[in-house]
């Protein structure tokens, strides 16, 4: 109907070819945007080469396993965090959720639930914490930075109380490591497989589905998104729950990997590394843009840096200085880029 009406209307012939200069600029700009991910990958490769030249054990099987273990769990948390950041929110409680989840699994198991069922219960509990985070941020309009700072402490406290602040042995890891434990994190190759699978699924969700498009819209222009009829609240709630559940899953992997379940595991360190990885990987803290792959690469850069610094015998505390500076630089770049974009509009 619309078509015949449209063709019947007097329409001036459209000039379909863009001016060549503009097209070239666009191509260049898009290349730079794509390069953001590429440049993080290049930095990672350069660092690998540097550390390998300085210490030949860097690429040894043993050290690679250490690296994998560092990267895997942080990258899983970062995958959930990126989605939240893109839709304009943040979750600081992921580190304490990471510590709580394996205890939920442990206690469920102690009460006769099979381990797999225990993992499912743990993830549901974590999703419930995510729901609380989302509810506070979305419906009570508490900025998620503050709301999740609260749940970070709250969940951490709960974990310490229910465990009497004492670590326990992770089931299935002592005296003999079962294949179940290997599948869920005790074996580094299974662990990195989980990570890659989660990263691929989340990236596909973000860039290949309507849900991903609406997530970007929610963070990029909240008012605009709601005017189009996108349920921004629902999208945010789901991302809060997914981010929390992923953090819980990372915690379960960590507990099987280490063999002991520690109430002080994770914490702000792993949370900070995950968010820093996301930001270094090109995710804007202001919402609307970012990639899960970029976050994985960002986490890799941080992991390689921390591992390499320790290997070459530099005081590991320098790591924090370097990371702090890198995050600051990445954020300034982020803000500058979005300012430039805004300036380009008007």
């Amino acid at each position: 109907m619309a078509d015949e009406a449209l063709t019947a209307a007097p329409i001036p012939p459209p000039t379909s070819t863009p001016p060549p200069a503009l097209a070239v600029l666009q191509k260049a700009w898009r290349f730079i945007l794509q390069q953001r991910t590429l440049s993080v990958a290049l930095i990672a490769v350069a660092m690998v080469i540097y550390f390998q030249l300085s210490k030949s054990v860097f690429l040894s099987a043993g050290n690679l396993q250490t690296l994998i273990q560092y990267i895997s769990e942080t990258a899983i948390i970062a995958a959930g965090e990126v989605m939240l950041l893109i839709c304009g929110e943040i979750d600081l409680s992921v580190g304490s959720v990471y510590a709580l989840a394996p205890f939920v699994m442990y206690y469920a198991n102690q009460n006769g639930v099979p381990l797999l069922g225990g993992i499912v219960i743990a993830l549901l509990v974590c999703a419930a914490i995510g729901f609380i985070n989302g509810f506070a941020s979305v419906y009570f309009r508490v900025p998620s930075l503050i709301a999740t700072l609260g749940t970070q402490l709250l969940v951490s406290g709960v974990t310490l109380v229910i465990t009497n602040a004492t670590p326990v042995l992770t089931p299935d890891t002592f005296p003999k490591v079962t294949s179940f434990a290997k599948l869920f994190g005790n074996n580094p190759y299974f662990e990195i497989s989980w990570t890659l699978a989660i990263v691929i699924v989340m990236q596909a969700l973000l860039s290949m589905t309507p849900w991903g498009l609406r997530t970007v819209a929610t963070g990029g222009n909240p008012l605009g998104a709601s005017e189009v009829g996108i349920g921004a609240n629902r999208i945010k709630m789901v991302h809060f729950m997914v981010a929390s559940a992923l953090a819980g899953f990372a915690g379960v992997l960590g507990a099987f990997r280490v063999g002991s379940t520690d109430p002080l595991a994770g914490g702000t360190t792993i949370m900070f590394n995950a968010i820093a990885g996301a930001v270094i990987g090109g995710t804007a803290l202001t919402g609307g843009s970012g990639t899960v792959i970029g976050a994985l690469l960002g986490v890799c850069v941080l992991g390689i840096l921390q591992d390499g610094i320790t290997l070459i015998g530099v005081n590991a505390d320098y790591y924090y200085i370097v990371v702090g500076a890198a995050i600051l630089a990445a954020m300034i770049l982020n803000v500058r880029l979005s300012q430039l974009r805004k300036a380009g509009q008007s």
Partner: peptide, 13 residues
């Protein structure tokens, strides 16, 4: 359908 003055377009898309 409304086209608002603040434009419901998403810059990032």
């Amino acid at each position: 359908e409304t086209v608002y003055q603040d434009l419901a377009l998403i810059n990032e898309l």
